[in-house]
Design a protein around this nucleic acid. Structure first.
Length: 592
RNA sequence: GGCCCCGUAGUUCAAUGGAUAGAAUAGAAGUUUCCUAAACUUUAGAUGCAAGUUCGAUUCUUGCCGGGGCUACCA
């Protein structure tokens, strides 16, 4: 029994009876804490249909509701706001109805359209860095949120495994590597490949400097450096299927994948299906040919194929090179279609890619629409801002990146140091402690990144991210751990009984109100593709719980009925925190 | 130049067009015979500027100012 629909009906009735007009909608908001009441009807919008003074109208409606709706106990009107006091029984009944529901707030799985969520999509020439971490956390979390809102979800990525970037690493390894392997070097395998990417860049810069010293123009030198020319020739060999190059490519990509897998596992993200650019980079060509016949694309004199998007306020965009080879856009058109072919039930895709590609995806989606695919209406670019460091922008070539593996490790270490200082882990084995440091360290990192609106830039301050005070992951985990402690100590409390005639403490009521909002928070987060909404919801819940915890006795000298209720309420709050954090990909500890 | 995104307390983040713009941190002051003080309670502090739409604007529109991005036959 939901209160809001009931109120909509009753308010509409009241207005109809008293003013003989039908208001098309009724606007609600939670009552601000400074006023008495639980839910507020905003009268102002009705003034368009009902002539009169808002206070007077509000008072009339309030009186009507008080008389005709059992759940409304009192009311007051401030300006155009009708504040309604909801009876305790309503909240108790609500709690009673949800307390035994597992996965409260989550919509039944697979009850809505299937959606494919793409995230990560790394290049295979260097290890993952902080930017990938934001991407991975966002993509994974959005996938979980969509699942929780009822969608079937496929998680995927497109691995950028071909191109000049990997040839650079390959060439440098060939030239400077002396047959070094992950085993012989002791390096994590993706870091080994990254090492040679850096080595390439160093050699490349040296060659440029030499050419410039010999009097060449800088731009010219950048284009003509021998090592670059060699990398380009290697790419051509790869495309021609040269056996030796392909063999090297397979070996080094294999190293990178092994390294990525370890990082993904540490981050707790996974995929249902992988797509490789080497398999898909030619895919879109047929579609382009087809679109050309239909007149969606046009061919220029030099043979290149374009689409004219000037009627949409955009420019012309190339979709096929003059030599007939595919560009990025061609590939993405092909991949999108391939995915729908592979998974016919999907109606919608989410692309988790940085905001520097906003324009690309705008164009991609337009092209797919013009090609007439119905699912093209359901595409979403989950665009997110860059992650900056206090020292400035991250640049992989200049070594100013924060490496993903290093960061994860340092978060765990810091969590360990702080936990040791607090010294609460007596009786824990070393293994259990390490597991806990991991939960806390990663929780801090994930929460720090996910609590921010995706489209905003993040200024990543490593020191601040490990702060465990305030609006942080560990703060929430700590509250969860305390709830578990209550439950352990409340073993003897009978939990099946639930009286509905208790008088609620103000803090109990506030907490119940917050719990009640969870399903709404999930739907909102799903509609906006924003894990930040979940993070902020859980934080509010935790604050409400802490305040409740501080002000009422749960296990102490309370009468049995109150004790039962408060223990059950705490348990439910713990469950909601756990569910919420699961949507963010964050684990919760039993103790900390 | 054109297009897109962002400008909120010292700092990091909130706010379906709604009431006195919320938190956290840093600052000041308190609270542990009691279930985990990684907590709680007080306190002080902000919408870049200027117009417009509206009963009402942090939110929508326009202009300006700041920051970032895109504007490749790279991916």
């Amino acid at each position: 029994m939901d209160l809001q629909p009931l109120l909509v009906e009753k308010v509409t009735n009241a207005v109809k009876q008293m003013y003989d007009v039908v208001v098309p909608s009724v606007e609600f908001q939670p009552t601000r804490k400074d006023f008495e009441g639980d839910i507020t009807v905003v009268i102002f919008p009705m003034l368009r249909y009902v002539m009169g003074n808002p206070v007077e109208i509000g008072t009339k409606i309030g009186a009507y509701l008080e008389e005709h709706v059992a759940e409304i106990r009192k009311f007051n009107v401030v300006k155009g706001f009708l504040n309604l006091v909801v009876s305790d029984v309503f909240y108790l009944n609500f709690f009673n109805s949800i307390k035994n529901i597992e996965n409260y707030g989550l919509v039944k799985a697979n009850s809505r359209d299937a959606i494919m969520v793409e995230y990560s999509s790394p290049n295979t020439n260097k290890p993952l860095h902080l930017g990938h971490i934001r991407n991975n956390l966002l993509g994974y979390s959005v996938a979980e949120v969509l699942k929780a809102s009822g969608h079937k979800v496929y998680k995927t990525q497109i691995v950028n495994d071909r191109g000049i970037h990997i040839c650079k690493s390959m060439l440098a390894w060939q030239r400077f590597g002396n047959g070094e392997t992950p085993e012989s070097s002791g390096l994590k395998s993706d870091h080994l490949v990254g090492k040679y990417y850096v080595a390439f860049d160093k050699a490349y810069k040296e060659e440029i400097a030499q050419l410039v010293a010999k009097g060449k123009d800088k731009k010219e030198a950048e284009k003509k450096a021998p090592i670059l020319l060699e990398a380009q020739s290697m790419l051509r060999k790869w495309e021609a299927g040269d056996e030796e190059v392909v063999k090297l490519w397979k070996m080094m990509n294999g190293w990178v994948y092994a390294g990525f897998d370890a990082t993904y596992q540490n981050l707790g993200v996974d995929f249902d299906k992988l797509y490789y650019e080497s398999d898909t980079y030619l895919l879109g060509k047929d579609v382009v040919e087809d679109g050309l016949k239909k007149g969606i694309f046009f061919r220029k004199e030099d043979g290149s194929v374009w689409i004219d998007l000037s009627d949409e306020g955009l420019d012309e965009k190339i979709v096929l090179r003059a030599d007939g080879t595919a560009v990025y856009m061609t590939q993405d058109i092909g991949t999108a279609i391939q995915r729908v072919t592979d998974f016919p039930d999907i109606n919608g895709m989410v692309y988790t890619v940085g905001n520097e590609q906003d324009y690309h995806f705008k164009v991609l989606f337009l092209i797919l629409k013009k090609l007439g695919y119905t699912w093209a209406e359901q595409l979403y670019h989950l665009s997110y801002g860059m992650v900056d460091l206090p020292s400035g922008k991250m640049k992989s070539r200049e070594g100013t990146v924060v490496d993903a593996d290093d960061l994860i490790q340092s978060m765990e270490e810091t969590a360990g140091e702080i936990s040791k200082e607090l010294g609460k882990l007596d009786g824990y084995s070393d293994e259990e402690k390490l597991k806990l440091y991991r939960i806390i360290g990663l929780g801090a990192l994930k929460y720090y990144i996910l609590k921010v609106d995706p489209k905003k830039r993040i200024l990543f301050n490593p020191e601040e991210s490990v702060d465990f005070q305030g609006n942080t992951g560990p703060f929430i985990q700590y509250t969860y751990a305390r709830i578990q402690s209550i439950l352990r100590k409340a073993k003897n409390v009978e939990l099946s009984v639930m009286e509905t005639n208790i008088e609620l403490h103000e803090k109990e009521k506030e907490l119940l109100k917050q719990v009640q909002l969870f399903p709404e928070a999930i739907q909102l987060a799903a509609e906006n593709y924003s894990p930040a909404l979940i993070a902020n919801y859980v934080y509010d819940l935790v604050k409400e719980f802490n305040s409740f915890y501080q002000q009422v006795t749960i296990l102490g000298e309370t009468d049995e009925v109150k004790k039962q209720f408060r223990v059950q309420l705490s348990k439910k709050v713990g469950e909601v925190i756990e569910s919420g954090f699961k949507l963010l990909g964050i684990n919760v500890p039993e103790r900390m």
